[in-house]
Design a binder for these strands. Structure first.
Lengths: 188, 188
DNA sequence: GCTAAAAAGCTAATAAAGTTAGCTGGCGTT
DNA sequence: AACGCCAGCTAACTTTATTAGCTTTTTAGC
């Protein structure tokens, strides 16, 4: 009989697809989708936990890339604005992977730790133009992260019943940008 | 042989304890802790899903109570401040139940739907003093929920590596309060 | 106080998921 | 063409949820 031609890549990809479709990521589902028996997956992936770690690492990387790409060539308000929009959009478009993004990295997994760090660094970099230092920089990063994560997360879980979320988001981002600007050393 | 003397209450209580300890809530764990065989739990709880629904409903109720209690007799900035502190504290003290709070209610479960609605209403009520109406009220509620959830959630998952989260929280809340006040009809 | 119904807890059995062990046969390399 | 590796398989085991049906305690009613 012919061979399925799997690879770690292919397995992880299908897991990502599954999670973004909102379906539970089980080895059984995965094997069925890949036209293979369950134990065969262990030839490409260490197990369910290892698979989750791979998905998380890749998600963190892609997410950081998306944020970085959205902000190249912009600074201050324009950068914050673009990053916020990119954040919300990526989270909405890839709900499963966004969820994976939130997972605290396994300290023994260097790749995942690095990917986690990078995502935070991108946000820190966006705030560089405000001349924030020390505690101010930390507080601003946390404010930005908390706000974006909170909004994206509530939106994803259907927590906002009514429509008009775009408008609410725009106002929140604008307000946040002003708040952070007021913390900067070079306040106008 | 003597009887264990369980009740729905007792089972749910142990499930809450388990989840707040960060352990996975399984019927097996639960039965072991209660000194009973697994199938016996079905005499008190419909199953794992039903148990989760019970935990969620009670968590939403208790959470709403905590927020309401923290804000009685206060208004505007004092109310927002107290509510934010209560929110963060409750989420930190009851991580498992806070997680349960986020679950979208089963539309067929009237009690859970009611509990969900109440939690949001408490937040809406806190903003009443600002004279917000229509879209402004909706936007402010969303801003408050998103910010608080985002902060509590990132804090719970250890997302903030460094210390000093209290200070970051205080500043964020203060900034948010000013933001919302600026949306009100009776801006100073 | 006795009896009968109700309810609590049990054992046994089934289904789904993850995991491990060990086999086999396809495919690339020499 | 032969060899060896490795992808994928079957078989078997573990854990968890769930259902069925039995037993025994408790409780309600007389």
């Amino acid at each position: 009989m012919p061979r399925a031609g799997l690879s770690t890549e292919r397995v992880v990809l299908e897991a990502e697809r599954l999670s973004d479709e909102g379906l539970p990521v089980t080895l059984a589902q995965l094997a069925q989708r890949l036209g293979v028996q369950v134990p065969s997956l262990y030839k490409h992936v260490g197990g369910l936990d290892a698979l989750r770690a791979l998905v998380a690492t890749r998600a963190k990387d892609e997410f950081a890339n998306a944020l970085a790409a959205a902000t190249v060539g912009r600074s201050r308000a324009a950068a914050v604005d673009a990053a916020c929009r990119a954040y919300r959009e990526w989270a909405a478009d890839h709900p499963g992977r966004y969820q994976a993004t939130l997972r605290a990295p396994d300290p023994d997994d260097a790749a995942e730790v690095a990917a986690s760090a990078r995502a935070v660094e991108v946000i820190t970099a966006i705030l560089a133009g405000y001349g924030l230092a020390g505690d101010d920089a930390i507080d601003a990063t946390r404010a930005l992260r908390a706000t974006l994560h909170g909004f994206a997360s509530l939106e994803a879980s259907g927590g906002f019943g009514l429509p008009g979320t775009d408008r609410s988001f725009d106002r929140l981002v604008a307000g946040l940008e002003r708040m952070i600007a007021s913390w900067g050393s070079d306040t106008i």
